[in-house]
Design a protein around this nucleic acid. Sequence first.
DNA 1: GTCTATAGGGGGATAGAC
DNA 2: GTCTATCCCCCTATAGAC
Lengths: 210, 210
Amino acid sequence: MTREKGKNQLDTTTEARIKQAARVVFHKKGYAATRTRDIAEEAGINLALLNYYFRSKEKLFEQIMLETMFGFMKTMVVIFNDASTTLEQKVSHMANNYIDLILLEPEIPLFILSEIRRDATAFVERMPVEELFLNSVFIQQYKAAVSAGRVAESNPLHFLMNLMGLVIFPFIASPFYKKIGKLSETQFNGLMEERKSLVPVWINAILKPT
Amino acid sequence: MTREKGKNQLDTTTEARIKQAARVVFHKKGYAATRTRDIAEEAGINLALLNYYFRSKEKLFEQIMLETMFGFMKTMVVIFNDASTTLEQKVSHMANNYIDLILLEPEIPLFILSEIRRDATAFVERMPVEELFLNSVFIQQYKAAVSAGRVAESNPLHFLMNLMGLVIFPFIASPFYKKIGKLSETQFNGLMEERKSLVPVWINAILKPT
DNA sequence: GTCTATAGGGGGATAGAC
DNA sequence: GTCTATCCCCCTATAGAC
């Protein structure tokens, strides 16, 4: 550790700064379009250091990808396994938390989806499916609601697709909507804020039997 | 034209075969991850021919991208500007046509979205926004329905986000849902078929005032 | 029009000084 | 730990024979 305290280098380690830079660049451009030189520049360090700390672009990427994926899904796992909330509350929490989360880092959903396409098996295999879905409190509540006739019968996967589609898709396709609606970044974000309360209402309407 | 009729080379021109191969490879891997050698191999021709016909990877890509984008949106333009259908019928047509379309070429949505992210301005700028949305029959009908109190007041962009989110998102995130639901390709496609009739019902439920 | 061979450059990775 | 310099492969693009 050569660094003197007086220099006050944002008090993060070099390794952490490289990782953070890699996060930013990978998220924005994806694996294939990212050059290790981009990351080095973003981190304000030399290219050789990247290999010193992380061995290779591939290894660095894998760390970022896994952390991003699990970080993103962790929210879902927590919400879906909270025994103290109802189905309706879970929907509301999902909408609120994910819209906030994506407003902070809008590149994440498309990043994850694109990279899973590139190498589906490698990453999807590591997902905690049981915990996330099959054995979750959410699934129990959903099935109970169907049995009780409180919601229309339909595959819980449809429910999940609907929820995620309503929450995530607008962000993924945002250039399209900004163009079509002649919206600034701020205006677009405003619409997303609105959806925090709208999505739960809509999901509720969908669930009600006709 | 050296080719003899007896050879019967799938009776397509070399240029068309290269283009078709480029479509396949670009759609699957995206611009950055695609090597011109992949395309040449897929087309069953030599790499030099690609440059002979299309000058460069970039130029070839631009053709594919524009054709794919406009091909995909054309369906929407037609449906949204059909004066002989109601709002409800338009939703049903959208769901049916797009689910069929994406079942045939599942890579298209993520391809378009990924490449727009890579170079947003270049492609999004060329979209026929007025025709597609602002001056469309759909918008007129939507506004009329709001005025008449037939649907709950909300930005038509929300409506469009909902519709596209419900239809397109499940395909984009399909590896995720296949894993979570332990679904085969066929089973997943079956779910998508179901959504052809479910999405219109759901959109209708969303539109109804509470 | 189609091929082989190769030029030319970019990008990942490492050697070695400090 | 951090840098500069450099290696070397891979990929795009072109020259030139047929």
